[in-house]
Design a protein around this nucleic acid. Sequence first.
DNA 1: TATTGTTATACTCTATAACTATA
DNA 2: TATAGTTATAGAGTATAACAATA
Lengths: 157, 157
Amino acid sequence: MAAQTQYEELARQLSAIGAVKREMGRILPQDCPPASAGVLTLLDRHGEMRMSYLAELLAIDMSVTSRHVAHIAERGWIERKPDPADKRSRLLRLTPSGKELLTELSERYTQTLARYLDDWTDSDVGNLIELLARLRTSFGDCRTRAHHDSTTRTPAG
Amino acid sequence: MAAQTQYEELARQLSAIGAVKREMGRILPQDCPPASAGVLTLLDRHGEMRMSYLAELLAIDMSVTSRHVAHIAERGWIERKPDPADKRSRLLRLTPSGKELLTELSERYTQTLARYLDDWTDSDVGNLIELLARLRTSFGDCRTRAHHDSTTRTPAG
DNA sequence: TATTGTTATACTCTATAACTATA
DNA sequence: TATAGTTATAGAGTATAACAATA
């Protein structure tokens, strides 16, 4: 358990980290907004999957996932095949073109972070990665356990 | 200097941390979106300030800052006084109503984090805070040093 | 001429609800 | 009846550009 002032400070840091995320988004190629890059990265790591599982990995609603997937499918970066086991489902898979784009994305991310984080040690970066991953785990699947009463917000963004 | 795979993983974690930010946003009171909470927190910590300085602290464009400030001013949480030293400027300051709201926000943030992070030690939370703060520092003022060539995006979100 | 702040417009991201097709 | 996915609509956040007032 941590002190109250620590929780307040963590909330503040999380609120402010958006500036870093926006800067990372600025280095992406035309036609590839940050959300598209996120989808492509997950498909690369986890392989072929269904929409519903992708939405779960992204921790966003499937309606939003559907739009992101449509965007990258229209550009030929993924293909959507019917699922032989369930005709309601579609299986998503990277195309060669999508894999090429991922290589480009990886280079840009790496170059940018190497530039900004030039005085960070391997261990520093590793610690941050580990703590961010643990933070996400601690929050679990936020969407499903969300509580909606009259005094709290259900924001769109 | 860190390895390339670490940079890729860090980019991935930063992309995914949005889920945590959204969950934190869900616990805010009606009428107080996350951006408003961020403005109020900064005014509380740094005291009376001008629009331009607030925009710098938020690391967002002043046009956006202006909208956020208008939102919280309309609700009586801050007051905007003319700056006697520069008639173009307006000085922003929390009202008693705004300070009351901040107390409520602090309680909600603390309760939420205490619940999700119940197995985190004081040291864990401290490390994460420190690394996030350092990350923001390493990125510096992202907006002013942004480079805009034909192959990169200038996203709105 | 440069700077402070506001407003108009556009784009990204997300959520809810209504809908179709299939299980 | 329930689930997978799509589409329509709305709201939040941000950036660029044009503008008014002042330095």
